[in-house]
Design a protein around this nucleic acid. Structure first.
Length: 522
RNA sequence: GGCCCUAUCGUCUAGUGGUUAGGACAGCAGGUUUUCAUCCUGUAAACAGGGGUUCGAUUCCCCUUAGGGCUACCA
């Protein structure tokens, strides 16, 4: 690799669904590698499989990538700020609203069918690829026989060996459906050096005559991928380990075209808890689901970055911003072994990031989650006479209390629904208010005492510091006797934030009302 | 079945030809605290097995075992 060549990498998802967390990690490593080396990060779309195409997937993929903040320099965008006039921006033919930016486009494979055809025909002319007219029926039968004879299933080269040029011409003239296959040379050892795995070698005798062009005129991954990467001047191919066994095919293809192959780095797979390749069956794999479930992008990126990579050398830091990751990332420190995707650590990271948010940020992020909840909707309707500022103030107080307790944004309010109901709807038994061996009379006395303290605080002085200070003074060394029943009376719950915090959020009137209600139970 | 890849605590991982094999999450036990959570402290927990090479291997090599991936007109 020439060091003065600008590094160019790409993320190349296929639009068969939402962005998978494993794909996100591939995208992230490509991004980090590009940024670290002042290179170019490209997004291209591999939509050559019409059967698996999912409507809206291209847009969703772009959306998830944008949400994650993985900015591209080139390729496919949904909206773009044009930096200078020399930049080429075209609208996608096949996806309305999608833009393609850069001089190596199209960046969408379904838009370059003619290009692939042109290239693959060169290969046929050179005798390095050949037409095949075998139908799926024949191929299936052939494979069954091979398997029953314990032979590896491989194409038998029927159309290469048994068909004359004349017959081929005839079939083509009659518009018989065909595919084009790569003529894989026999008895050769393909060796290459993978950046994360080191030397890999595979004998070509184990490689099938790969289909390059399908009968519907679309290229297969193998063909399209090589042509794109060559045309886009990709220098490093960073992709999942599932591609490792087909890399020799790709090298053969580069060779057949007379092109220099890029460097390869195959990333270890992300595994589910049963150590299988992470799949839909094992819960959420779509980045979108994590967003929906209240994870922050910073936490997701941090977590995913550390699955299969670590800065090493005694580094004990666990929390990294995207900028820090760019700074520390080194592709050759990527692991070889697969990594199990364990939600517990993601939860911990997410909680750490939530704690670091400013109250305004937390409010902005948490509100959409709150608005989806029934208890919030009910509360919102009941308090429609509140103006927005009052509401925001109240909600921010709740969030200030909840911030250090939240694991996910979606948890907002869930443990503290008593903030969203009226005092009259809270019921609590004397037993639930009882502190240790106290009698009901003790509980009542203490509640009355707390009530007096709170009544003594003016509305202007109603703040957390005063409430806490005065209540603690009143409690003396018997804190539980006073505070436990108060907390229970205010919340109606066995567990909750401190009575100071709850009283502060509820406000003087509501707090006193709730104590009154609790006293009636005794 | 064939080919390829991989192997340090339950999980993510650091690390070295000689270390008390380190950290984080989760677990457990304490502490702070009115409950819960946070926070703090402590604790348990790993080099898959067998051969080599070597004065010495967790580290280098080989084999075994286990796991994974690929084996499509899917990517």
């Amino acid at each position: 690799m020439n060091t003065d060549t600008k590094i160019r990498v790409r993320f190349a998802p296929s639009p068969t669904g939402y962005l998978h967390v494993g794909s996100l990690r591939s995208a992230l490593y490509n991004y980090l590698f590009a940024r670290k080396n002042k290179g170019v990060f490209i997004l291209k779309i591999e939509d050559t499989d019409r059967k698996r195409f999912v409507e809206g997937a291209v847009e969703s993929l772009i959306g998830s990538l944008d949400w994650m903040g993985l900015k591209r320099d080139e390729g496919v965008f949904q909206s773009v700020e044009v930096k200078d006039d020399s930049e080429i921006v075209i609208s996608s033919e096949n996806y309305p609203g999608v833009l393609e930016v850069g001089k190596f486009g199209p960046y969408i494979q379904s838009e370059k069918l003619e290009i692939y055809k042109k290239y693959v025909e060169q290969l046929v002319e050179k005798g390095l690829a050949y037409y095949c007219f075998c139908g799926s029926e024949r191929l299936e039968k052939m494979r069954e026989e091979q398997i029953s004879q314990k032979k590896p299933p491989m194409y038998d080269r029927h159309c290469l060996n048994k068909l004359s040029d004349k017959e081929i011409m005839e079939k083509l003239k009659n518009n018989e459906p065909y595919v084009i296959r790569l003529k894989v040379p026999k008895d050769r050892l393909i060796e290459f050096s993978d950046i994360v795995r080191g030397k890999i070698s595979i004998n070509t005798n184990t490689i099938d005559d790969q289909v390059l062009m399908k009968s519907d005129g679309f290229p297969t991954y193998h063909l399209a991928n090589i042509i794109d990467d060559h045309e886009m001047q990709i220098t490093h191919v960073i992709r999942g380990e599932e591609w490792l066994p087909s890399t020799p095919k790709h090298i053969l293809l580069y060779e057949a075209f007379g092109w220099t192959a890029p460097e390869f780095a195959h990333l270890p797979l992300l595994l589910s808890t049963d150590k299988k390749k992470l799949s839909k069956r094992m819960g959420d794999v779509a980045v979108e689901d994590y967003i929906k479930n209240g994870y922050l992008k910073e936490a997701i990126i941090n977590f995913v970055a550390l699955l299969g990579w670590n800065p090493g050398e005694g580094e004990t830091q666990e929390i990294f911003s995207l900028e820090e990751l760019v700074d520390k990332f080194e592709i050759n420190k990527v692991h070889k072994a697969g990594a199990v995707f364990d939600l517990k650590k993601l939860d911990w990271l997410n909680a750490q990031y939530i704690k670091k948010l400013s109250l305004d940020e937390l409010f902005a992020k948490a509100l959409p989650f709150l608005e989806r909840k029934d208890f919030y909707k009910d509360w919102d309707i009941k308090n429609k006479d509140w103006n927005n500022i009052e509401k925001e103030e109240y909600l921010k107080k709740i969030l200030a209390v909840e911030q250090e307790r939240l694991v996910k944004l979606s948890d907002v309010g869930e443990e503290n629904k008593f903030f969203f109901v009226e005092g009259k709807d809270i019921s609590i038994s004397p037993d639930e208010m009882r502190w240790k061996e106290n009698s009901n009379q003790d509980t009542a006395n203490n509640l009355n005492k707390a009530k007096e303290v709170l009544e003594s605080i003016s509305e202007e002085n109603w703040n957390l510091q005063n409430i806490e200070k005065l209540l603690l003074e009143s409690a003396g060394d018997k804190r539980g006797d006073l505070l436990f029943p108060l907390r229970a009376a205010l919340t109606g719950e066995k567990r909750s934030p401190s009575p100071f915090q709850v009283a502060w959020v509820l406000g003087k009137q509501e707090a006193i009302k709730r104590i009154g209600k609790a006293l009636e139970q005794l």
